[in-house]
Nucleic acid binder design. Sequence first.
DNA 1: CGGGATCCTTGACGATACTG
DNA 2: CAGTATCGTCAAGGATCCCG
Lengths: 133, 133
Amino acid sequence: MSQRNTDATVRVVDAHPCPVREVLDRVAGKWSVQILVAASHGPMRFTELERGIDGISRRMLTLTLRNLERDGLVTRTVHPTVPPRVEYGLTPMALELPGTLQRLTDWAERNRGHIAKARAAYDAEHRPELLDA
Amino acid sequence: MSQRNTDATVRVVDAHPCPVREVLDRVAGKWSVQILVAASHGPMRFTELERGIDGISRRMLTLTLRNLERDGLVTRTVHPTVPPRVEYGLTPMALELPGTLQRLTDWAERNRGHIAKARAAYDAEHRPELLDA
DNA sequence: CGGGATCCTTGACGATACTG
DNA sequence: CAGTATCGTCAAGGATCCCG
């Protein structure tokens, strides 16, 4: 139970997992959120996404889009022109996500400092080896 | 940038990542959320957590707790008794998380059916090999 | 009771190259 | 333009055993 399946192929049917995990399995991939956010203001072309999301590779963009499409979060529309034009948009249920994720963003920005300090303190205490660099 | 580091040891300092990713890197681990939820109603002992979280191994419980502690989300209190008694509680900033995560839970439960259907449809269309079992 | 040490499998992701 | 194919790396997480 609980798989992410970006590269891989599906295994079995999930039983009845924790619903929070269900969302996370869908959204926690390294690029999913950025794709959802990028496409939340209207459909985007493949290359637009590629340019808009810094550091993403063609491969990961394709894979992540396919997974989002498979889960019904993203729609893929091919315009049969030359050169081809493919647009990715969000489905209604996916459009609700960026707003919800915003709360997490806020939490992160509020507590970013605390976390950094906590890490430094913990490492100084329990990880002497890490004090070089 | 953007690492999860459950097993591993830290690498470098993150630059200035997307804040959403920052939260997810902390919380998207397979067990983190369940631990946070379990401990949100008051401190829990190691064995209580182990029994309360279905399917978790001793190893992953320890590792995940250590990471949460390192990030300042969980406090670890050792009572020097015999036998030892160790309690894990949430820090103030961590206590805000379960409430926030609730919104994702709600989204998941509302759309669980849609997603399942979308998957089935997608697989039927694009993954003929999977139609056995 | 509350861990730590070790071994292993699998899957996420990156780099590079090729294509209708 | 919008992908696919292939190869390699590395970390997440499971299984098992040992310890103060």
